[in-house]
């Protein structure tokens, strides 16, 4: 498979995953704005921006002393920043635009159905401005956007041939999902420590952003005990949004791409994935001995591993240096 196509597929997949994630984040926050106490709303915004490692509009989100926090920006400004701001690489529309640009690059190798889904969604949404939807039901816009990204994934699953193209698609989606969920979980625990008594809403909301609430209720409880929720999101291999599941997908893909290459750059990717899987398998804090600080440390280590996957993939498969032309050529 052409390296540039692999990179295009990978980024298309990442941007679609990111678009869906931010759409769900905003949707949750818009729900919170309607019926949550002011403090919870503020922490909801903080959760988003901390996870994104971003300050809206170049300024601070929260001002105030130890006792009194005060929101400096209104919801309209923040949603605009999260949905439409061109300079925000995590904003919904720039993500969709980037996904489409990458899809255009690789149109000859993705299915027609995937392209049509993405293209139609983009064309329908590109002219929307927040002021057009704000006075109505802005939630609908973000619900639709989230739905489109899920549909796109389903179409890919249903129409893609299971060759390298498919595996690079999975790599992009899994790495992006793991990164987003790890960062969000870390931010969430920082703002809503598990030892404190919280509204069920906060943890239910987290699970919903991670597309895990329904499964969690079925497997565990509808009261969303924080430790169990964290464990579910990180270590349950049966939950398709968990970190463990993402790592397993990355590991499986890495064993196939590049014709099972055995050179050092390719082995480096597999080693890093294996180590991350080992961390969850052997070192993950259990519910019986739960500790927020240790959990957050572990989340940070896993997040670094995900960032490392990207660098490794780039060096091994996308932009590798051609050092020895006599080796590895094929007719």
């Amino acid at each position: 498979m052409l390296s540039r196509d692999a990179e295009g597929i990978y980024w298309m997949s990442r941007y679609m995953e990111r678009a869906g994630h931010v759409a769900r984040l905003v949707l949750e926050q818009l729900q919170a704005v309607q019926d949550r106490p002011l403090g919870a709303i503020e922490r909801g915004w903080q959760r988003i921006y901390t996870a994104m490692n971003r300050s809206p509009g170049g300024g601070e989100l929260i001002a105030g002393g130890e006792d009194v926090d005060e929101m400096l920006l209104d919801a309209f400004t923040l949603v605009d920043d999260l949905a439409f701001e061109p300079s925000n690489p995590n904003a919904l529309m720039p993500c969709l635009a980037q996904a489409r640009e990458n899809a255009r690059q690789v149109r000859s190798v993705i299915s027609h159905e995937m392209w049509a889904c993405l293209n139609v969604a983009f064309l329908e949404m590109r002219g929307v401005r927040l002021q057009d939807i704000w006075t109505g039901q802005p939630q609908d816009f973000f619900r639709d956007a989230a739905s489109i990204t899920t549909t796109f994934g389903g179409i890919a699953d249903a129409t893609m041939y299971r060759d390298e193209v498919w595996h690079f698609f999975l790599l992009g989606r899994s790495i992006e999902r793991a990164q987003r969920h790890l960062a969000l979980l870390d931010a969430h625990i920082g703002l809503f420590p598990t030892g404190e008594r919280h509204w069920v809403f906060d943890w239910g909301s987290l699970l919903r952003v991670c597309e895990a609430r329904g499964a969690f209720r079925r497997v565990h409880s509808n009261e969303y005990p924080p430790e169990t929720a964290v464990d579910f999101l990180v270590a349950d291999p049966a939950h398709s949004g968990s970190i463990a599941h993402a790592l397993a997908t990355v590991a499986a893909a890495c064993s196939v791409i590049g014709g099972e290459r055995q050179d050092e750059p390719a082995r480096r990717v597999r080693r890093r994935v294996g180590r991350a899987q080992g961390l969850i398998a052997y070192d993950w804090p259990t519910r019986d001995a739960y500790d927020d600080a240790a959990t957050r440390d572990m989340l940070k280590v896993l997040l670094q591993a995900c960032l490392g996957f990207h660098t490794d993939l780039e060096q091994a498969y996308f932009r590798y240096a051609v050092l020895d032309l006599s080796a590895g050529q094929s007719r």
């Binding site: 498979m1 590049g258 290459r261 590798y320 032309l325 590895g328 050529q329």
Partner: peptide
């Protein structure tokens, strides 16, 4: 040659 994910292909 073209640059593929596996190796250079003529």
């Amino acid at each position: 040659f073209m640059r593929t994910t596996g190796k250079l292909r003529q």
